[in-house]
């Protein structure tokens, strides 16, 4: 490599101007997408994913039904235009299958699948832009889409990527940083602090692990705040819209009046 980009310069800034522990800008869009039961578009900096959730619904394949709980089916599709170099990935790509399997195993203990025996919950993840932290974006997006679909969850699942440059821990890595530093993705349930996923594809020194693991856990709580406020805004917008129609009470009251008048006879 000729002109090497500094991951962390002497002033303590990263290549995109963030400090070590700063997260990228996160935006959440929970509006209705097509006929999905719930959907979410999540961006972390330049990484963007769209997650659509369908279900719980009748399993399309009989072999996939589980008699006492719902089956979660995750499919990931990476858009050819999502990376810097245009590249088409097929559905059978091993890396993508692994990503889908990781998402599935992250959510299996969190979704209350036992409430929906013999059903199936379909999660379709569309990766629109990639700039590092793909798994974290997929997990955060899936959480929000599941909440939006009204599927019961024990808690939010909030994921963050952490890495270590020399000895300095960093959070929410971009693609550039991800390629150059050992990194770990951690998904936490903020209420209990339980961790549903820790995954590494690179080697990380044992002594550094605990520090970065704790940092990622704390960062998950920050992300949780963002997700919570997005869900609250969406819910209150829908409740207000429903209330702006004819009041529930009004119709009932009219009916009751009519009933009372009937009773008088």
């Amino acid at each position: 490599m000729g002109s090497r980009v500094e991951i962390l310069n002497e002033g303590g800034f990263r290549s995109d101007g963030r400090r070590q522990y700063e997260l990228r800008d996160m935006t959440i869009d929970l509006s209705q997408q097509g006929s999905a039961d719930g959907s979410a578009v999540v961006t972390h900096g330049l990484t963007q994913v769209l997650v659509s959730v369908f279900g719980p619904r009748e399993a399309k394949m009989r072999s996939q039904t589980i008699h006492d709980r719902a089956n979660i089916n995750v499919e990931v599709n990476v858009a050819a235009f999502s990376t810097g170099e245009r590249r088409r990935r097929t559905r059978g790509d091993k890396r993508i299958l692994e990503l889908a399997a990781t998402i599935k195993s992250t959510f299996e203990p969190v979704v209350q699948t036992n409430l929906y025996p013999r059903s199936q919950i379909d999660v379709f993840v569309q990766v629109l832009q990639q700039d590092g932290g793909l798994l974290q974006a997929c997990i955060n997006g899936t959480t929000l889409a599941l909440v939006n679909a009204g599927i019961p969850l024990l808690d939010f699942v909030c994921a963050v990527t952490g890495g270590v440059h020399e000895t300095a821990p960093m959070l929410d890595l971009t693609l550039l940083e991800e390629n150059d530093t050992p990194n770990v993705t951690v998904a936490v349930m903020p209420k209990t602090g339980k961790v549903t996923l820790v995954t590494m594809e690179t080697r990380l020194h044992v002594d550094r692990f605990e520090k970065i693991f704790r940092l990622a856990g704390d960062a998950g709580k920050v992300i949780h705040g963002e997700m919570k406020s997005a869900v609250k805004t969406r819910t209150s917008a829908l409740v207000t819209a429903m209330g702006s129609g004819p009041r529930v009470g009004a119709g009932d009251a009219a009916d009751r009046d009519a009933d009372e008048r009937m009773n008088e006879y």
Binding site: D37, G38, G55, P56, R57, Q112, V147, N148, A149, G150, I151, P152, L153, L154, V231, R234, T235, L238, V239
Partner: peptide, 21 residues
Amino acid sequence: SVAGTVERVNKLVTVRAIRTR
């Protein structure tokens, strides 16, 4: 476990999801 409105009937607490099947 879902996002929605909290409802209560005597001592029973339920949450009604705003969008669900």
